[in-house]
Write a protein that binds this DNA or RNA. Sequence first.
DNA 1: ACCTGAACACCGTTCAAGT
DNA 2: ACCTGAACACCGTTCAAGT
Lengths: 222, 222
Amino acid sequence: VTTRRRAKRTPARAKPLDRGIIARAALRLIDQYGLESFSMRKLGSALGVEAMSVYHHFKNKGELLDGVLDVLLDEIEPALDRPGTPLDRLRACFEDVRRLAVVHPHAFWIIPPRRFRTPRALAFYERLLEVFNAAGFDAATSARFFRLLAGYVTGAGMAEIGSRALQPGATPVILEDFSDPKAFPRITSVVPHLRRENLDALFEFGMDTIFDAMKRHLDEKG
Amino acid sequence: VTTRRRAKRTPARAKPLDRGIIARAALRLIDQYGLESFSMRKLGSALGVEAMSVYHHFKNKGELLDGVLDVLLDEIEPALDRPGTPLDRLRACFEDVRRLAVVHPHAFWIIPPRRFRTPRALAFYERLLEVFNAAGFDAATSARFFRLLAGYVTGAGMAEIGSRALQPGATPVILEDFSDPKAFPRITSVVPHLRRENLDALFEFGMDTIFDAMKRHLDEKG
DNA sequence: ACCTGAACACCGTTCAAGT
DNA sequence: ACCTGAACACCGTTCAAGT
């Protein structure tokens, strides 16, 4: 009788690997154990394969992470096809980016450092800019609101991951429970507003601000 | 006669190490070679010291990076003391955060993943929130505009680092020089607006949008 | 108190070899 | 074409030892 370990590995490799299988397995590992502790060697062993087999499908770890990013894009692109005005669909899509930060808090960190340069990412980018165009924005204005929105949702997404994190025991200060009205009165008064139950409203406030400006821009020029 | 290498190391250790010396040396290394290739061992050898001596001053690599973050905060806090209205000073400070992305493109990546929890970082945070208060924002509104601004400057800062980067030769697509009007007409028309010479205007557009909203909020309630 | 040096348990990636 | 296994050049961190 084979060991439990062996039993877990063998059936997985009835079919040969491909990029999709590998990228989805990588995302699963990152979701479970974090980006920090993710390694090509652990990925190999999760796939029931020698670590270095992955290199037959991805040139290196960077390209593999681009592959994981492609998987994440599959989760946000459908928002662009939801019913509503172009502006509604843009908002839905950027809200889905933020939802990624909630659902995949570890994998979300892959997004900012990687340029969008896979075919999949270019296709998504093109689709998104089509909706900007359909809303009535010219190229220059699309670029500006795109960077404002993308900057906000990625930056705020990362901050929100911090606000939601179960802090490891050793952390000296858990900011969300911070209270020191003598030495830090302002921090003490602001910190309750950064607690978990207020994070939705906090995020939507920024979105309201940006989308109001977008609407105003379209009204003024229309 | 000692070797050049030895000559470089020895005089540096006339004085003993301290956290400031170590953190500034770390920032120098990160600026020069990148965050990816920065290691405790290289830091030790740059300091002319056995790698593990650093652990006498910082508990681990994470705490050392918090120390580097403290050094970066010294570069942006003075903006809060510049002349002008509280709103002017807030804008100056957040513009300095973005300037950090231009001046320290490698070290900038330290900022988003690390919580602000050193004494230095708490002091900065308190100072910043004082200026929000001086401008007339209550705690809830300070929290909201703070996250909008901080999200935007960090997110857009990271994107801008990408836009400015000298892409390594092997990169298949340099987005800023992208041109494929047949397959990707929208990307092709937007990409010129993301080029280096337009990055200042691009960033300021977002700042204008957010600070207009802040001003309007103060006017409406005042 | 401050630094050393060996050791432990890992990394990503290359390469020659196997099927 | 697809995978293996050894090897190379690294990591962060622990720990006993030195001064």
